[in-house]
Design a protein around this nucleic acid. Structure first.
Length: 580
DNA sequence: GGGCAAATACTG
DNA sequence: CAGTAT
DNA sequence: GCCC
C-alpha cells in the first residue's frame, strides 16, 4: 500500500480485510508484490518517487502483467462486486502518462460510483451481505454459511494477476480451535452492539467485530508464512527500499458513508438521550454496518439489503444521500443538547428523565444546576464533588482505597475475603470507581450485613468514608458511597462495597468483573446453551420460558472457573475480558 | 407483536 | 410509583 | 429501530 502506514487504523483494517480474501499486504516492495494499492490523493509520479523507482524501470513489469498499480479502492470494489474488476481508468494509476499532470487525480468517490457500470454485472450468486458482516442473530447460527467463501474464491487475485508468490492458495483450512472461543466470540459480537454506554461504535469495536467474524467464517486461505522481518530479497527488486514509513496519519473516519453515519449518529444521540433503549440499539447496529461498507450506500434499495437496516432506516439513508440532510433530525435535535444532557447525567441521581426535564427548563450548565433548590441530597453531594467524581482514578490509588477497606474489615473479621472488582480486577491502568466484594465462607447474609455496618462505622470514623449514596440503612447487601484517601489527594471517589454469599461468589465475580459487554455475551451464550446466568449463579433455563424471575435449578455459583467450564468457555483471565 | 439480559435496591 | 443506579 |  502506498503510502505505507502500518500504524494507521485504516491500514490495519484494510490489511485484515485483504488478508481475509487471501491477499497479503506487505510493507516491502519486492518481487512478490503483484499489486500496488495507491492512496486516492497520490498520483503516479509521486508513487514512483516514494518507491524510489522511475517509470521506465517498472514499465516492463507492468506490461508483462506481473505488477499492477491501482487505486486502493480497487480491492474494495472487487469485493463488493464479487469478482475481479478488470483494468480500467477508474482504477489503474498511470505511472508514465505522457503529460505528467502531477496534482490531479481522479476522485475515488467518482470511480467507485462507476464500478457497477464498468463491470459486467452478471448477477453474482445470491450472496447476502449479512453473511460476511457482523450481524445479530444470524451470527448465532451454529452453521456458518459458506457460499460466500466459494464465491470469493473467484476473487483470489492470484489467478487474475498471474503474480506468483504474493498470494498463496492455502488449502488447509484454519483448524477450529475447538476451545469454545468461537462460540463466545460470536455472541460477543451480538453483545457489543447492544452496549448502551458507548455513544456509537468505536473503531476498535468495529475491528473486533471484524476479527471475530473472520475467525468464524473465513479462512479459506491462510496468510502465507512469512518472516515478517528480514526476508531475503532477490532479483532486481532487491535494491528497492522497504516501505516502512508510517507516522502520523489521518485516516478518513468512516469511509464512503461518513455523511450518512454522522447524521444517523445524531439520531442515535437523540434517541439515547430520550432513553429509547431499543431504537438506540437499532441505530447502533445500522451504523456499525455502514461503517464497514467500502463503497457508498446510496439508495434505499441497496441499504435495505444490509444487516440491521430495515425499510425505515433505508429510507432515511436515501434521503440523506439525496438532500444531504435529514428532515426528521431538524426537529429532534437541539443544538448542543446532547452535550448538556451528558453533563447533567454525570450527576448521581440524574438520568435521562431528569436531564431532559432540566434542559427543557433552561438548565445548560452546572452552575445552572447549582442554583436549583430542588436537588436531592445525592444530587447535591454529587454536584459538590463533580470534578472529583468525573476524574479517572489511577490504579495505584484504587489500591490505596482498597487496602484501607480490606485492612479495616480484617480488624473486624479476619476471615472476610475482600476483593477489588471491576476495571481494577481487569488490570486496567485506571478506574471510574472502586468496587469491592466482601464475602466469607459459611457466613449468612445477616452476618455479612452486620460486618458491613461495623466496617462503615470504622471507615466514617476514620474520615475515609465520606458519604452514603445508598445502601447501608437497614441491612443492605451493599454500600454505595464515597471515600477519600490522603494518598489519593483526598479526592472523593465513588466506592461500592458489595456483600456476596459464599455460594454466589463465582457468579458475582464474573458479574462484577465485567466488562459490561463481556457479561452480556456470557449471558447470551448461557441462554443459547439452555442456561441462565446472573450475578447469583448459573441456572438451568426454566422450561416454560416467560414468567419473569423463573429460573431452573442452580448449576453452579460458587466457582468462577466452573461456570466458565460449564459454558464451554476457556476461563479468560479478567484482563482478557475487556471487549469493545 | 414480542424480544433485544436481567434482577434488585434505594430515593423521593 | 417513577426514576435511577448497580 | 430491526428481526423472526
Amino acid at each position: 500500500m502506498v503510502p505505507s502506514r502500518p500504524s494507521s487504523k485504516l491500514y490495519q483494517i484494510k490489511s485484515k480485510k485483504y488478508d481475509e480474501y487471501g491477499a497479503r499486504v506487505t510493507s516491502s516492495f519486492d518481487k512478490s508484490v503483484s499489486h500496488v494499492l495507491i492512496d486516492p490523493e497520490w498520483d503516479g509520479s509521486r508513487t514512483l518517487k516514494y518507491l524510489h523507482i522511475s517509470a521506465g524501470d517498472i514499465r516492463p513489469e507492468i506490461d508483462k502483467g506481473t505488477i499492477h498499480f491501482v487505486r486502493d479502492s480497487w480491492p474494495s470494489a472487487c469485493i463488493e462486486n464479487k469478482q475481479l474488476i478488470p483494468e480500467s481508468p477508474d482504477y489503474t494509476v498511470q505511472l508514465y502518462s505522457p503529460a505528467p499532470s502531477p496534482e490531479t487525480t481522479p476522485e475515488p468517490e467518482v470511480s467507485q460510483k462507476l464500478v457497477q457500470t464498468v463491470i459486467s454485472p452478471e448477477k453474482p450468486p445470491k450472496l447476502k451481505k449479512r453473511d460476511i458482516s457482523t450481524s445479530s442473530n444470524t451470527s448465532l447460527s451454529p452453521e456458518p454459511d459458506t457460499p460466500k467463501q466459494t464465491a470469493i474464491d473467484d476473487l483470489n487475485p492470484v489467478e487474475a494477476s498471474g503474480a506468483n508468490t504474493s498470494i498463496e492458495n492455502k488449502a488447509e483450512k484454519k483448524a477450529q480451535d475447538g476451545s469454545g472461543n468461537d462460540e463466545l466470540d460470536s455472541v460477543i459480537q451480538e453483545a457489543e452492539l447492544q452496549e448502551h454506554a458507548a455513544r456509537f461504535l468505536s473503531d476498535d469495536e468495529i475491528e473486533h467485530a471484524l476479527q471475530t467474524q473472520r475467525k468464524k467464517y473465513s479462512a479459506p486461505y491462510s496468510r502465507p508464512k512469512r518472516t515478517s522481518d528480514g526476508r531475503v530479497l532477490k532479483g532486481n527488486w532487491d535494491t528497492f527500499l522497504c516501505m516502512k514509513a508510517g507516522e502520523d496519519n489521518i485516516a478518513k473516519p468512516d469511509g464512503p458513508n461518513a455523511l450518512v453515519i454522522n447524521i444517523l449518529s445524531l439520531m442515535l444521540h437523540h434517541y439515547e438521550a430520550e432513553g429509547d433503549q431499543w431504537r438506540t440499539l437499532a441505530y447502533r447496529k445500522a451504523i456499525a454496518t455502514l461503517k464497514k461498507q467500502t463503497v457508498p450506500v446510496r439508495t434505499a434499495a441497496q441499504a435495505v439489503k444490509l444487516p440491521g437496516i430495515g425499510s425505515r432506516l433505508a429510507d432515511k439513508i436515501e434521503e440523506i444521500n439525496k438532500t444531504g440532510d435529514l428532515k426528521r433530525l431538524k426537529y429532534t435535535q437541539g443544538e448542543g443538547k446532547f452535550e448538556v444532557l451528558e453533563l447533567l447525567k454525570r450527576i448521581y441521581g440524574v438520568g435521562n428523565k431528569t436531564a431532559n426535564k432540566w434542559y427543557s427548563e433552561g438548565i445548560r450548565t452546572l452552575d445552572d444546576v447549582r442554583e436549583r433548590k430542588d436537588l436531592t441530597a445525592n444530587q447535591q453531594t454529587s454536584l459538590d464533588h463533580y470534578e472529583d467524581f468525573a476524574e479517572r482514578i489511577p490504579r495505584d490509588n484504587v489500591t490505596k482505597h482498597f487496602e484501607r477497606v480490606r485492612d479495616a474489615v480484617h480488624e473486624i473479621d479476619p476471615e472476610i475475603e475482600a476483593t477489588a472488582m471491576g476495571s481494577y480486577r481487569r488490570l486496567q491502568p485506571d478506574c471510574g470507581d472502586i468496587d469491592i466484594i466482601l464475602t466469607k465462607r459459611n457466613a449468612s447474609r445477616h452476618d455479612l450485613t452486620v460486618t458491613l455496618a461495623k466496617l462503615l462505622d470504622v471507615l466514617f470514623e476514620q474520615g475515609f468514608a465520606k458519604y452514603t449514596f445508598g445502601g447501608i440503612e437497614a441491612n443492605s447487601m451493599r454500600w454505595l458511597g464515597a471515600s477519600a484517601h490522603p494518598d489519593d489527594g483526598n479526592k472523593w471517589r465513588r466506592m461500592d462495597i458489595l456483600l456476596v454469599p459464599w455460594e454466589e461468589r463465582g457468579a458475582a465475580f464474573i458479574y462484577y468483573t465485567g466488562n459490561d459487554i463481556f457479561n452480556r455475551s456470557m449471558r447470551l451464550l448461557a441462554q443459547k446453551k439452555g442456561y441462565r446466568l446472573n450475578e447469583k449463579g448459573l441456572f438451568l433455563a426454566p422450561h416454560d420460558r416467560k414468567s419473569a424471575g423463573a429460573v431452573g435449578p442452580l448449576v453452579c455459583g460458587e466457582d468462577e472457573e466452573k461456570i466458565f467450564e460449564t459454558l464451554g468457555v476457556p476461563n479468560r483471565p479478567p484482563h482478557k475480558r475487556i471487549i469493545g
